[in-house]
């Protein structure tokens, strides 16, 4: 994850309390989604950014996961994301996200 984005996540989690934060990802595929999710839960796996060794354990989902999608307005979702969702391998994304959440999410 971009270093500036890691810094913002860290600051916002400290400011608002990690239990109050939800991170929503738009990654293009499963592995990238998994790495981003790992970064905001277990720490930056690439050891480059401010979240290296920081285990925030944030709640994190990909926007195409049912838990998020089901709460959104279907018309707006269809307009903004619908067609891209057809292009993405959503099953792969869901599997990666679920695995990371089960392992590292605290909230």
């Amino acid at each position: 994850m971009d270093l500036e984005n890691q810094k913002r996540v860290k600051e916002l989690a400290e400011l608002h309390g990690p239990e109050n934060i939800l991170v929503i990802l738009g990654a293009a595929e499963g592995e990238a989604a998994g790495i981003a999710a790992e970064t905001v839960t277990a720490g930056d796996p690439t050891y480059a950014g401010p979240l290296t060794g920081v285990q925030l354990g944030l709640s994190v989902y990909h926007v195409c996961e049912d838990a998020i999608k089901s709460e959104l307005d279907p018309t707006v979702y269809d307009e903004q994301i619908g067609m891209m969702e057809m292009v993405l391998d959503v099953d792969d994304i869901v599997n990666e996200m679920t695995a990371i959440r089960e392992q590292y999410s605290k909230y």
Binding site: A27, A28, E29, E31, A32, I35, M83, M84, M86, V87, L88
Partner: peptide, 18 residues
């Protein structure tokens, strides 16, 4: 693909086809 950005041209052509 190994870097997590997927197959960018393919995603574009899928979108155009869609």
């Amino acid at each position: 693909k190994p870097a997590g950005a997927g197959d960018v041209p393919l995603a574009n052509f899928k979108m155009i086809g869609a």
